[in-house]
Design a protein around this nucleic acid. Sequence first.
DNA 1: ATGGTCCCCTGACCGC
DNA 2: TGCGGTCAGGGGACCA
Length: 269
Amino acid sequence: MPELPEVETTRRGIAPALIGHRIQRAVVRQPSLRWPVPADLDRHVAGQRVRDVGRRAKYLLIRLDQGSVLMHLGMSGRLRVLPPDSAVERHDHLDLVMETGQLLRLHDPRRFGAVLWAPQHEHPLLTGLGPEPLSDAFDGAHLHARCRGRRAAIKVLLMDARIVVGVGNIYASEALFRAGIDPRRAGGRISAARFDALAQAVRAVLSEAVERGGTTLRDYTAPDGAPGWFRLQLAVYERQGKPCTHCGTAIRRVLSAQRSTYFCPHCQR
DNA sequence: ATGGTCCCCTGACCGC
DNA sequence: TGCGGTCAGGGGACCA
């Protein structure tokens, strides 16, 4: 489900129910996620107050007085805030029960998501990550520097979290379409000016998607159950065979690093 | 270091 | 209705 806009929408949705409130306990029904949920999670979080709900890359960081809970939604993860004693359904793997009675519930059919404990608010998974795409540290010059000499396709490099975080399969294709760059082009064979356009396109696509609450393709919904409306703005993603919104040429689908990639063969070079 | 490929898991959908 | 194949928003672990 989630790229940066969906994770950010989730963060904003869950924050009010958490910040300033104490966690009563953690209920783990299915510890077998991407990595095992720590067996002693409840002991770490019970009785602690939530100071803040942050995000780094696609990780949600629930910051407590002592340590943080890290959550990742993987492909199919969904977080909702529910009333006390809400009925448990299939794939409801974990609850954080707040002292208010409300539940923060993780639902994740494919179990590619993760729930981890970071004692010092930091975690090895967060080291070595590239800049946030909506921060000042991300621009064309950064991309240019990081892609210099690389033969890998620019779309694959855009999705490499060591170069820039948060850009997943949907928004990588969309940003490259807006920048007019062929997703198969080698990263090292793109001019500085075109990297400027690409960085701007990444920012624009992601911030527009955040404004619209993300993209609902199949099962994604925000914590309040609302879908994301950015799907209506998608120019190429899952539009193979349909006319390009700019020139009418049929959109193509190819594979890059085993992931579907969509582009207009006329507008993108 | 870099660039491929494979895999974790469940569910939806499509053609036979 | 059932069955097998394909695909899916992530990303770490391997391999050469």
